[in-house]
C-alpha cells in the first residue's frame, strides 16, 4: 500500500467511525424523544388539566395541582430573577466593564451557572425551610431564582456588549444622562438578545427538579398558598414515576411530555427571536 493509499484508507475509517458515533448519539436521543412523545400522547387527556392528584385507582385524577404549582413557582422566580439578572448584567457591561470587580463577578457567576443545583436546594433548605419549620413554595422560588440569576446576568452582559458604542456616544452627545442612555438606547438595541436570554433561562429552571425536592416539596392537592408546600411538574413526575402504580406512572409520563414540550417551545422561540432579529 502506498503512503497515499494508506492515508486515504485511514481517512475512510475515521470518517466512518465518526459518522457512526453521530448515528449512535442521534439514535439514543431520538429514542428518548420517541418514548416521550408516544407515552405522553397516550397519557394526555382533558382530565389531567381538570383534576387534582388522587390515590392510585381513582378515575378522576390529574395534574392540575402540579401544573398550577409549576406556573406559580417558575413564574414568580422569573419575575424576581429576570429584573435582578438584567440589572446585574447592566452593571457588568455598562459600569464595571473590565474592572477587577466586574471580572470577578463574571467568573464566579459563570461557575455558579454549572454548579450542582441540588447544592442550591440544600442551601435554601438550611436558610429557609429550617427556620420556617416546614417546606414552602417560597423556598422553591428562592432556589430557582438563585439558579436563574447567573444565566440572565451572563446573557444580558453579552448582549449589551454587542450594542455599538457609537449609539451610546450619540445619545450622550444629545445630553442624555447615563441611566437614560442605558434604558432608552442600549436596552432597546439589545432587546431581542435579552428576550432570548430570558426564554432560555426560564426553560432551564423550569426543568429543575433537584433544588425543589426539599424546598417546595410536593402536594397532592391544589394549593396557592406560597407559605405551604407546593406541587411542581418535575417533583410530581419524579414521585409518580418511582411509584409502583401504573396509573400514577401514566400521569408521570403526561407530566414529562407537557414539561418537555414547554421547554422545547421556549428554546425554539428563543432561537426564532434571534433569527428574525438577524434577518432585519
Amino acid at each position: 500500500m502506498t503512503a497515499t493509499q494508506k492515508r486515504v484508507f485511514v481517512n475512510r475509517i475515521v470518517m466512518a467511525l465518526s459518522t457512526l458515533s453521530a448515528g449512535i448519539g442521534l439514535f439514543f436521543l431520538f429514542w428518548i424523544l420517541y418514548i416521550l412523545v408516544s407515552n405522553g400522547v397516550e397519557a394526555i387527556n382533558w382530565d389531567i388539566f381538570l383534576f387534582e392528584g388522587a390515590p392510585p385507582g381513582y378515575e378522576e385524577s390529574g395534574l392540575k395541582q402540579a401544573l398550577v404549582g409549576q406556573l406559580i413557582i417558575v413564574g414568580i422566580a422569573t419575575l424576581v430573577g429576570v429584573p435582578l439578572g438584567i440589572l446585574a448584567g447592566t452593571y457588568l457591561s455598562e459600569y464595571g466593564q473590565k474592572s477587577k470587580l466586574a471580572e470577578t463577578i463574571r467568573d464566579i457567576s459563570d461557575i455558579m451557572m454549572s454548579a450542582p443545583s441540588i447544592v442550591v436546594g440544600s442551601f435554601v433548605y438550611a436558610i429557609m425551610v429550617v427556620p420556617m419549620g416546614h417546606f414552602s413554595a417560597w423556598a422553591g422560588i428562592v432556589a430557582l431564582t438563585i439558579i436563574m440569576l447567573p444565566i440572565i446576568l451572563r446573557t444580558t452582559d453579552d448582549m449589551l456588549h454587542l450594542v455599538p458604542t457609537t449609539l451610546r456616544e450619540a445619545a450622550f452627545a444629545l445630553g442624555a444622562p447615563k441611566y437614560k442612555v442605558i434604558i432608552q438606547v442600549v436596552y432597546r438595541g439589545a432587546k431581542a438578545g435579552i428576550l432570548t436570554g430570558i426564554l432560555l433561562g426560564v426553560a432551564r429552571v423550569a426543568g429543575e427538579t433537584a433544588p425543589l425536592l426539599f424546598t417546595s416539596f410536593n402536594d397532592n392537592f391544589m394549593s396557592t398558598d406560597l407559605m405551604e408546600p407546593m406541587a411542581s411538574l418535575t417533583v410530581t413526575m419524579y414521585n409518580y414515576a418511582t411509584s409502583p402504580y401504573e396509573d400514577w406512572q401514566r400521569l408521570g409520563w403526561a407530566a414529562a411530555f407537557i414539561l418537555s414540550m414547554f421547554i422545547l417551545s421556549l428554546n425554539i422561540l428563543g432561537r426564532l427571536v434571534l433569527l428574525t432579529k438577524k434577518g432585519k
Binding site: 416521550l36 426543568g207 419524579y238 414515576a241 414529562a256 418537555s260 421547554i263
Partner: peptide, 9 residues
C-alpha cells in the same frame, strides 16, 4: 435542553 429528570425516567 431536555431536563435531566426525563433522561432518568
Amino acid at each position: 435542553a431536555i431536563p435531566s429528570v426525563i433522561y432518568g425516567m
